[in-house]
Each structure stands twice: as C-alpha cells, then as structure tokens.
Design a protein around this nucleic acid. Structure first.
Lengths: 221, 221
DNA sequence: GCTCTCCTTACGGAAAACCGTAAGGTTTTG
DNA sequence: CAAAACCTTACGGTTTTCCGTAAGGAGAGC
C-alpha cells in the first residue's frame, strides 16, 4: 500500500473525508492542500529531497478565489505532473461524471484512477486505492459503463483536436492549414469535411454547432 | 430565522456540514435528502399536511445512480418547486461557479440565494441564511462580481432561447420560424441574424459555433 | 400635424459549410 | 505482380451563414 499520499481538494469537507479513509488504511504520511499550486510545489519539493510522494488524489475543479494561481484546474495539474514526474500515481476524485473527460485523462494523461464522488464515492475510492497500489487502473463503474457502453469510443486524438479548433470558431479552411503545419494527416480541406461528417453522423448532430454542443456536454472538450 | 429547512445534496459530507451549520443557528427542524425526487416528495407532503418547509437548500448537480429519478438536477427541482410552491424559499448551494447560471436562476426562477461551495462556502451560506430570512437575496461575492462586472449583462431571455436553438443545430431560417410560431419578436430571418451578430460582438465570438461554445462555458446553456 | 429616431424587415453578394462524386495514391490480399 | 480495397485529395453545386445597405413602420417629441 502507499506510504506518502497528497490530497488536493479545495472543499475542506471532502478533503477531510478522504483523509479519514486513508487513516483507516494505515497510510503513514498524508498531506492535504486546497490549491493546485500548493500540490505542485509540495510534490516538487518532496521529489527534490528524495522523499517523493507515492500518490496524488486530486479533484478536477478548484474554485478560484483571491489567491491568484498558476495552475487553476486539476486537469492542468495532472498534465504538468505526469510530464514532470511520470512515476507519480494519480487518482482523480471528482464530481464530474463525464465519460469523455475520464476517457481523455486515462488515455492521454495515463492517470491511474478516475473515481466519481457521489453517494458512495469513498467506498469506490477505497477500491481504487487497492487496485492502483497493485499497478492497475480503476474507473468508477458508472463511468466505465458509459465509456464501454456507447459514446466516445472510436474517437481519436485528431477528432478531439478538430472539435477543439471548431469550438474556438476556426473555419474549416484554417483547420486544414493547422493540420498541415502540425503534421496531422489527413489534412486537406476535403478530409476535414469528411472527418466532420463522420463525427456528425456518430453523434447524431445536425451541424458543426450542434456537434460542439454535444461534445461539450459529454465532456470531450 | 427559519423553523423548518430541507437540505438536498447527494454528497453526505456536504450534507452533514450544512446540517451542523443549521444546528448552530438553532433551527429546530432539519431534514436531509440525497435525491431530488425525495426533496420534491417531502416538500409536497409537508405542504399538504399544513407543515410546509420554510426553506430548501439544494445542490444543483446530483449524480445519477441505480435509483431512477424523475427529477435529475437541482435546476429542474428549482423550476418545479418555484412553480408549485412559490412561497418556498430556495437557496442554491453549489460548486458551479457559473455566473450565467446564477443570473439565470435568480432572474427567471427567482431563487433567493446562490452560494458557491468553496473554501469558505459555509461562512457564505451562513450569511445567505441571515439575508434570505429577511426576504433579501444573497449571491456569493465572487459570482456577484462576475455578474455585475462584465459578462452576461444585457442578455435577454430571447437571447438565451436563440442560443439554445442554435446549440441544438437549428438553422437560422428555422429559428426565425420558431420565433414566429412562439410569438417572439423580432422574428424575421434578418432580425435573427442581427441578434446573432450582436451576441457574437458581445462575447467576441468568431462565428455561431464559437458563440455556443462560449455560452456553454459561461453556464448560459 | 410633422419630423426624427429607433426598430423591424428585406435584399444582394461574399464567405463558409454541406454534400455527392470522382480521380489519384497507398496498402492489402490473393 | 495485379486486382481489390481503402485512404486522401480534388472539384462542383447547393444550402447556410455572414455582412452591409436600405426600405418600411411604429412611436417620441416638437
């Protein structure tokens, strides 16, 4: 089991609840923070001192307040940490029940667990801790069901990029150029159109605007 | 101060935290529920028995689980209750820090308070309880600042409808027809175009897709 | 009454999105 | 190797969006 764990959640009540669970599991070193920046600094310093954390349990949404922060979301925190400290295990513990988001984080950021807070979130978190300690990946059943169930399968990284650019108001011609300069293929305008057509079909969207709306609802964006 | 209060939040930890606060304020009757349907039924029954609740404190997002529910979000719950029991005061207590959403709920549903959970959410909730008891409306300072600050002012109900239809993939010509049949004016295609132009300008959107994306981020949709 | 202003509608042209078809390449397969 | 299947790109036409300009109408103020 883990020896040194960092908990990052802005809500004190949640934060404490997780700590209680970790105590039950007899984890010796537990640190709690309420800001992403604090989480990053703690992990960086511990690593430098040769006393690295085994695990980070983090929320995704951190409510901004008077303290200006460099890292303002759990997603950003995950991206930065997984890049800088690949060995650090990360469990995301959040209320966001978006399957697309979970899928995204697991496949592109390689997080080790995605647990949705909920009526019995702590029980799921306990299960996740056991599995992740054994180098496995845990996803909350509800989320897992949605992912394997229907939507958000067959969606490639290119699709996500296309949807992101689209949601930023970029016309298809420019998206084609973007794909060319970033060496994403296929990149022709015709190919972009085809890709979009496929996505519209897949999600049952009437047009690009509708498509972006659906993607945002699913948490893909 | 209030005598009979219902708390609706799916997360037990939050639920308990609020209860503790209400105890401190010496509120005699406190009920907790974890589902929107339960909240609705409790309120309906209490009203029928002539022992109506004074106040509902509710979250907005309720995570779905095995129990199938008729009312699946706090927003739906608010709409239903404010229609059926206009005298019931409602404070929304949520992590959603979307100014557009708060604005929307206050102006169209006439909720009495919008408190964002956060690092000192309970302190704000306490303040809200005092004000709402005096028939005033409370909005968390952070949210208030955003609303009065810049965005989401000057956005009419028609604008919201337009954005919603747009996000559902409806072409402008059909939106014009929709406005005509629902007696919303102006309704001509030209007017719809103009309205859209204004909204694009206002939010700095490049096109309709971008506009919908921004509106969703702000919580207007 | 009148004019002025504001709101709504109408129109025309350029840009972009949408849609089908087909040509040129590449990979797979027998 | 050759045929087939698949992928990528190209092109033309229709619809929709975007944008400027202008005409028609209602109301405000003089």
């Amino acid at each position: 089991m883990f020896k040194k764990v960092l908990i990052a959640d802005d809500l004190i009540s949640v934060n404490s609840g997780v700590e209680t669970l970790l105590n039950e599991l007899h984890i010796p070193q537990i640190t709690k923070v309420q800001y992403c920046d604090d989480a990053y600094l703690k992990i960086k310093e511990a690593h430098k001192n040769g006393q690295a954390y085994d695990l980070l349990i983090t929320d995704l949404s951190f409510i901004p307040d008077h303290r200006t922060q460099k890292i303002i979301s759990g997603k950003q925190l995950v991206v930065v940490l997984k890049k800088e400290f690949p060995k650090l295990k990360i469990i995301v513990y959040t209320v966001e029940d978006k399957a697309g988001l979970a899928d995204n984080l697991i496949n592109t950021q390689h997080i080790n667990g995605y647990v949705s807070k909920g009526r019995n979130g702590l029980a799921e978190l306990k299960e996740a801790l056991k599995l992740v300690a054994k180098d496995k990946t845990y996803i909350s059943p509800a989320i897992q069901q949605i992912i394997t169930g229907s939507a958000t399968k067959n969606i490639t990284h290119n699709d996500i990029i296309l949807l992101q650019l689209l949601s930023q108001g970029m016309p298809q011609s420019q998206i084609s150029n973007y794909f060319k300069t970033h060496q994403l293929s296929p990149s022709s305008l015709s190919a972009i159109e085809k890709q979009l057509n496929r996505l519209r079909d897949y999600f049952g969207a009437k047009n690009a605007t509708h498509l972006v709306s659906i993607a945002k609802d699913l948490g893909l964006l």
